[in-house]
Amino acid sequence: MLDKDKIAGFIGNKILRLLSLLIVVCFVSFMLIQYSPIDPVRAYIGEMPVSAEHKANLEEYWGVNTPPQEKFLNWAGDALKGNFGISLIYRMPVTDVIKERFTASLVLMAASWLFSGILGFILGIIAGMKKGTWIDKTIKIYCYVLAATPTFWLALILLMVFSVYLGWFPIGLSVPIGVTAENVTFLDWFLRLILPALTLSLLGVAQIALFTREKLIEVLSSDYVLFAKARGEKGLDLVLRHGIRNVALPAITLQFLGFSELFGGTVLVEQVFSYPGIGQAAVAAGLRSDVPLLLGIVIVSACFVFFGNAIADLIYQFVDPRIKQQEASI
């Protein structure tokens, strides 16, 4: 009963927070775009030559001279109804663009999130167990190098080595050029996913591995591990029984908190690999002044990061027995 009430409270609280966050995010992004030197008419007509009269008509159509507050309210009103407008560069509803692009990105992000989480955790555990040995030092150096590596640079290196020199993987895009959608095989798509996912994973590994290592060393020097040793537990059994149990929860929480970095990394990686995901769309929308699409992406990405943080909170509050207990006693 208590738990049910608590979960309802938690969800209610989160929804309220999300709503207030979205309102602020929308408002601020809208204002940023409003005061930036973006000309929607220019974005729409591109390089086409138009007459002054035609241009005035277009300005009238796009509402260039409407006051900003009215613009915002119009947009917000439509957005509430689920209509985010038409993307200027793709010439289709923003919701459709985001749906398509986000699905592609989600596969990429999920793959690298899982892979980096698992690999990072294992590396961290090994390094922590073997603290001070050459294995630990190797893993640490690897992590420091990766943590200092810019995403796009690593992406370029991988692309050069594996696609250009070795020719193991296709160079870019998510499907082969000149093949109709029905004829694209799973393998075609999968091969093009590997390098971007690998880039994102390799970078994600550093943070989680270093964190896991640090946490495991802390756990292994704790009183309860000392006592476990005194009771005859040792070696891998000891680490599995007490180490993993106490490190897993904070590590998983951290991995969920990393959604924002994951998203940021995706933008760059998709750009380098020309992977048609949400990140690439965001860059395109920004560069070519596609205001409706940009706002739509801002909202979706805010929700995405918020979702990650909410899950981290959820784990923290409902899975850890210590916190659970404290909350209940208040």
Partner: peptide
């Protein structure tokens, strides 16, 4: 022989794994 012939009784709750249920800890490995 530690844990079998010689046993330690520690001083506080800090010596118990905070995330393990009591019976599992007492039973041990």
């Amino acid at each position: 022989i530690r844990g079998k012939e010689i046993a330690l009784v520690p001083q506080s709750t800090n010596y118990l794994d905070p995330l393990m249920r009591i019976s599992n800890q007492v039973i041990g490995c």
